[in-house]
Structure formats: structure tokens, C-alpha cells
């Protein structure tokens, strides 16, 4: 469905060149969910915005790479062509539905906008489709609610509206950027279940961006672990949780308090995430890694498959030293 090859996105600012995405390759198949996990500054959101032509330029620039979606390279489409793809074949859901919804427009108007614009649907028909879309995401009394404004909805309900709006055109790919981070856990569970159900109904591919390993475990088939604009590890979700093959992934999992915890000292990754302006030689995680040796600092290590579809970028794990 989507094949991204060696994507590189940088921001040319007065303070220097910010290397947001250095080298990113992945694929997503129809009906599959790919999770991208990483901390702030790991490049996970910038990568997705790059695909959709949503990087503010200047200062941002996609310097390299290829993103094949249904035979077309998204990175080389003119703005007009991208506009026809965005919101129709590829939809996006953001973390904060309040900033993504227009506070001045009625909810119904916003939900039917994609089919009005992309499919040229007539108002009456679009209204029907919007009511169906809202009902399918569990909004009761959808017809009456369409006349309301976003502020009259709770956070969970707004996120449902966003989902209805993203799915109304029956996209082939959904990109969800921290879709449940602003929500309470009980509502998060509802929204994740809802997205999964809609995905199954439409046979859609999904890229789910999150910093929460729990959300990944719950909703994803495959996972990419990103750090400083690079992929540290990728593979089937189950394998990554059972047997992480990169010290960064292991450190991330160890630093979370366990629900059956002892209350003792937590494992804390030393140091801070790297400053993306200073060029990094070697593995970007090496300065914070307990297992780093000289070989790690000399040259960056390419991803290598150690097991079927389970890749790591750790030179020491590849050499069998860890």
C-alpha cells in the first residue's frame, strides 16, 4: 500500500540544520497497522507530515527519498495532486481534536466537507453520509448533534468526530498521530477499539504514531522504534515485546514503572535526547547506551534482519555481543 524508502527531512533554520528525519524506510500493507514509537524529537510526526506534503517550507525540506503510494511517489507530486490524495485516499487524525476542528463551524458541516470537496457530493446526500459516519463511530442522536459546535462535545466525542471525518471518504490509508494521548484511559480504550473496528470494516492500512508502548502492544501488527530520526528496531509487535533487539527499545521498556512493581528505583536512561543540530557520527543512542563501545561511535549501523522481519540497528546485537 505504502512503501517509503530512505526518507530524509531537514529544517534549515538560523540556528543550524535540524536533522529531523535522517533515514527512514518502511512499508505498510492493506489492512495492516504499523506502529511508530519514539520520544519527542524522534522524527515520527515529521516523517508523516513529509509524506503528505505538510512540512512548512522554508525552513523544512524533504531532501531525499521516495514514498510510493498506489504507484505514485508522494514526494514528487504537485500540490494539486497531493490535495486530491490528502483527506480522500490518505486521511489523518491528530492528537488534539480541538485544534484540528474549526470552532466556528457546525460539526456536521465539517464532517461532510471531505465528501463535498473530493467527491462533489450534493449537500443532502453528504448530510446523510455524515450522519451515517457519526453514527458508526458511536455518536448517538447524530442528526441533532450535527448542528452543534465542537466546544459542545467532550474530548472523547471530539475525537470520534475526527475519526468520522477522516473515514467518511473511505481512505485506503489512515495516519493517526497520538490519537488517544489527550484522552482518559477508559475513553482511550473505547477509541482504540473503534479505530480497529473501522479499519477492519474498510480494510484500510494504518500508521499509528505514539509514545506509549502499551498502545502499540494493543493496536499494532508491526512496530518501528525511532530515535533521532532513524529506525533503531523494527519487527512484528509480538516479537519486539517478547525479545527486543536494540538497547534503546529495552531501555524504553525497562524505564516504565510496572503495574506489579516493587516501588524501588526505576531504570532511568542516562542523559538527554540528542540535539538534532549537531551532526551525529555513529549510533545516535550510543552516548546514552549502557552497552556502547568504540565501534558504536565510529559509524552508524544499518538495519539488519536477525530473525524473519525483525530488524535491529545495533552493531553489537548484530555481532552477537549482546
Amino acid at each position: 500500500m505504502l512503501r517509503v524508502h530512505r526518507l530524509q527531512t531537514r529544517f534549515y533554520t538560523r540556528g543550524g540544520v535540524v536533522r529531523a528525519v535522517e533515514d527512514l524506510s518502511f512499508t505498510v500493507d492493506a489492512g495492516e497497522t504499523l506502529g511508530i514509537v519514539g520520544e519527542s524529537g524522534s522524527g515520527k510526526s515529521v516523517a508523516m507530515y513529509s509524506l503528505l506534503g505538510l512540512i512548512p517550507s522554508p525552513p523544512g525540506r524533504v531532501d531525499r527519498g521516495e514514498a510510493l503510494f498506489a504507484g505514485r511517489d508522494l514526494l514528487r507530486q504537485p500540490e494539486r495532486a497531493l490535495r486530491a490524495i490528502r483527506g480522500r485516499e490518505i486521511s489523518m487524525i491528530f492528537q488534539d481534536p480541538m485544534t484540528a476542528l474549526n470552532p466556528y463551524l457546525r460539526v456536521g458541516t465539517q464532517v461532510m466537507e471531505p465528501v463535498r470537496i473530493h467527491d462533489g457530493m450534493r449537500p443532502r446526500e453528504a448530510r446523510e453520509r455524515a450522519a451515517d459516519a457519526l453514527a458508526s463511530v458511536g455518536i448517538q442522536d447524530a442528526r441533532r448533534r450535527m448542528a452543534m459546535y465542537p466546544h459542545e462535545f467532550s474530548g472523547g466525542m471530539r475525537q470520534r468526530v475526527m475519526i468520522a471525518m477522516a473515514l467518511i471518504t473511505r481512505p485506503r490509508l489512515l495516519i493517526a498521530d497520538e490519537p488517544t494521548t489527550a484522552l482518559d484511559v477508559t475513553v482511550q480504550a473505547q477509541i482504540l477499539a473503534l479505530i480497529k473496528k473501522q479499519q477492519a470494516d474498510l480494510g484500510m492500512a494504518m500508521v499509528l504514531i505514539t509514545h506509549d508502548m502499551g498502545v502499540i502492544a494493543e493496536a499494532c501488527d508491526r512496530v518501528l522504534v525511532m530515535y533521532a530520526g532513524m529506525v533503531m528496531e523494527s519487527g512484528p509487535a509480538r516479537d519486539i515485546f517478547r525479545k527486543p533487539l536494540h538497547p534503546y527499545t529495552r531501555a524504553l521498556m525497562r524505564s516504565r514503572p510496572a503495574l506489579r512493581g516493587s516501588g524501588g528505583e526505576l531504570y532511568a536512561i542516562p542523559g538527554l535526547p540528542p540535539d538534532l543540530i549537531t551532526p551525529i557520527t555513529g549510533c545516535p543512542f550510543a552516548p546514552r547506551c549502557d552497552h556502547a563501545r568504540d565501534v558504536c561511535r565510529e559509524a552508524a549501523c544499518a538495519l539488519r534482519a536477525l530473525e524473519a522481519e525483525h530488524h535491529t540497528a545495533c552493531v553489537r546485537v548484530i555481532a552477537g555481543k549482546l
Binding site: E39, A251, L252, S255, L266, I269
Partner: peptide, 10 residues
């Protein structure tokens, strides 16, 4: 971030 959370909790 997760890696910093553990530092502050400790």
C-alpha cells in the same frame, strides 16, 4: 518523555 519520566520519579 518516558526516558526522562523515570529520572524525575527516581
Amino acid at each position: 518523555d518516558v526516558s526522562v519520566q523515570a529520572q524525575i520519579l527516581n
